[in-house]
Structure formats: C-alpha cells, structure tokens
C-alpha cells in the first residue's frame, strides 16, 4: 500500500517538477511548484515527519510561493515575456543534467545502506521530539539563524525600497 503511495507520489513529484521547468508561463511554473511541494509534503508524511510536513506546507506553499506569485503578478510576467533559449542550449542542458544524474547515481552505485531495522522510536518526526532537539542541541543554529533573517530583512528592504535617484 505505502509502496504504491510512494510511487504515485514520486511520479507526481517528478512530473510536477518537470512541469515547473518546462512551463512556458511563469505563473504555471509557480503553480506546478506548489503542486510539487504538496507531493513532497506527502513524502514527509509517509516518512513519519508529520510536523515537518506541516511546517513545509506553511513555509513553502504558504509563504515562499505566495511571495513568488506576488512578484510574478507584480511584474506581470507571462509566456510572452519569457525569453527563449535556443534549442541547442536546451538540449545541451537537458543532456548535461541527465548525465549529471547518471554520474551521481553511479557514484553512489554501491551504496548499501545496510540491514535496515525499524527505528525503535517512531516519534522522531513529532513536534515534541523535533522541538526538543531544536531548542537543545540545535539551540545555537536556531539563534544564529536570526542573524540571517535580520540581514535578509534589512537587505530586502534596502534593495526593494522605492526611492528617488
């Protein structure tokens, strides 16, 4: 059951990801990306990371993608404004990415992840577990990431602020 679920989700993920890449209209790309994020959230759920799945949806689909949509609409981008690359570059990039995939897989070809035991704890994906970890072991990164946000915040304001020359 979950195998089929996984496969379905996986195929959906890949299709939507490809659609992001190949959609002519940026708007579609954004929408496909949202689909993709949902399928990934599905994977998280499959992997017992329920809390993360929720956060993922909130952050990505809810915040980041909205931002994207907002910008796309603001700039009024559509298929016509999308510049096209020559076919040669397109083919080249497709081949390059494909080759890269092959190379990556090949370099992991012998990866045997060992005898798999079901984790004795199934609750690692729960909010309690993750939260504990975040505020003990990962306290410092947590706090440091605030610096990142501060910087990004000031920066975005600085850059996007409309001001006379």
């Amino acid at each position: 059951m979950s195998l089929y679920l996984f496969l379905t989700l996986a195929i959906l993920t890949i299709i939507s990801a490809l659609a992001v890449v190949f959609s002519k209209n940026p708007m579609y790309s954004v929408l496909w990306l949202i689909v993709c994020f949902f399928t990934i959230a599905g994977h998280y759920v499959l992997l017992n990371a329920q809390f993360l799945a929720i956060v993922h949806l909130i952050v990505y689909a809810g915040a980041i993608m909205v931002l994207f949509l907002f910008v796309v609409m603001l700039l009024n981008l559509n298929a016509d404004t999308e510049p096209h690359k020559s076919n040669l570059t397109k083919i080249a990039s497709a081949i390059a990415a494909g080759l890269f995939f092959v190379v990556l897989i090949a370099s992991m070809r012998a990866t045997e992840l060992g005898e798999f035991n079901l984790p004795n704890k199934t609750s690692i994906g729960f909010v309690e577990e993750v939260g504990k970890k975040l505020f003990t072991d990962f306290l410092l990164p947590f706090e440091i990431s605030s610096v990142l946000f501060l910087s990004a915040m000031i920066g975005s304001v600085l850059l996007a602020k409309k001001e006379k020359k």
Partner: peptide, 20 residues
C-alpha cells in the same frame, strides 16, 4: 550566468568522472 552554471556543472561532472 547560464553559461557559467553550465560550465560549473560540466566541470563538476568531469571532476567526478575523473575521480570515479
């Protein structure tokens, strides 16, 4: 930029192939 990224990817690929 597209070319740069392309070159980077090719570079990585070549290096990986050399290594592997």
């Amino acid at each position: 930029t597209g070319f740069y990224v392309f070159a980077m990817v090719i570079g990585m690929m070549v290096l990986l192939i050399i290594r592997l």
